[in-house]
Design a protein around this nucleic acid. Structure first.
Length: 291
DNA sequence: AGTTGTCAAGCTAGT
DNA sequence: ACTAGCTTGACAACT
């Protein structure tokens, strides 16, 4: 079991997700930002290794506008060595990596244009992981998508479009249960038809489920992970008190976390802590499971 | 130097 | 038909 946090380290003094406005796009600007982002990513990963945090989500802002038509710059070639070096560090230290394109990436949209842009976005995410030389256990996670008035046809559209995806995307794509539309059960029916592995989000599951306990849900999604995919990835968070249902907590509720670990004992999975204070909570969590 | 509005992209639910 | 909210950090323009 590895513990990690997404995209940002709040204490280290640099960011690996610095971007700029589309209006300010230029190859120079891109090179500058990406150079800094990659340098910071290295620092974050070093910090993580030093602190036994061996699961990390790389920000989708690592390469700003990578899949936008404006970006004709061949960043893949320009930063080839950087990626390869980062990849070696990741492999040497046995770090698990994920990426999570945002809400605009929808492969089940009825709009062809949206699907096309989504595939372009998935392509660059996978290219980054490929340039690092990472195996199939480095995943790119998305949600199933919208309902568009008819869930069954929305699911069928996902399956149809999934089957047409290029192999470099298929080998890395994973779907995650969300808090409003697609539950673990829904994801399972998608996975049955596509063999796509499911990332279990415990917080979303507490918002939307079909009656399964955390343990039952984890047991179900575990079966969607093949050997080459690695052990299941999961997201963990908890409710921010006195806030709207679904809001992620500011700091880890270590009591709730311990309970979760206890209830899921015996199942091996990696945990991404989707918590605002990032590495601070991750340090508490790693301490809690090591104790 | 600090504050606030805005940012490439989409969908759902509520009016 | 239209818009706020999702959920969110950081850029960029403004005090």
């Amino acid at each position: 079991m590895k513990i990690g946090y997404p995209c940002i380290n709040r204490g280290i003094g640099c960011t690996a997700n610095s971007t700029f406005r589309l209006a300010n796009y230029s190859p120079d600007n891109l090179v500058n930002k990406v150079t800094n982002n990659l340098a910071c990513l290295k620092k974050i990963l070093e910090y993580n290794v030093d602190n036994n945090l061996l699961f990390f989500r790389i920000s989708s802002d690592l390469i700003p506008f990578a899949s936008h038509p404006i970006c004709e710059f061949k960043w893949q070639d320009y930063f080839k060595e950087h990626f390869s070096e980062l990849g070696s560090f990741i492999k040497k230290n046995n770090i698990r990596i994920s990426m999570h394109p945002d809400q605009f990436v929808l492969i089940n949209s009825p709009k062809e244009e949206v699907v096309k842009k989504s595939i372009a976005d998935l392509t660059w995410h996978c290219e980054v992981l490929d340039l690092m030389g990472l195996d199939d256990s480095a995943k790119v996670q998305i949600h199933v998508g919208g309902i568009y008035g008819d869930k069954e046809s929305a699911i069928n559209r996902f399956v149809r479009n999934y089957k047409k995806l290029p192999q470099p995307i298929k080998r890395r794509l994973a779907i995650e249960n969300d808090e409003r539309l697609y539950s673990v059960k829904d994801c399972l029916s998608v996975s049955e038809m596509t063999k796509v592995p499911i990332i279990f989000d415990s917080f979303h599951h507490s918002c939307l489920n079909d009656g399964q306990t955390m343990r039952e849900a984890l047991g179900l999604i575990q079966q969607t992970w093949n050997k080459h995919d690695g052990i299941p990835m999961t997201d963990y968070s908890s409710q921010q008190l006195n806030s709207k249902v679904g809001k992620h907590t500011e700091h880890i509720d270590i009591k709730d976390f311990r309970k979760y670990i206890k209830r899921t004992k015996g199942i091996d999975f990696d945990i991404m802590l989707e918590i605002k204070d990032k590495e601070k909570s991750a340090l508490k969590a790693i301490k809690a499971i090591s104790a």
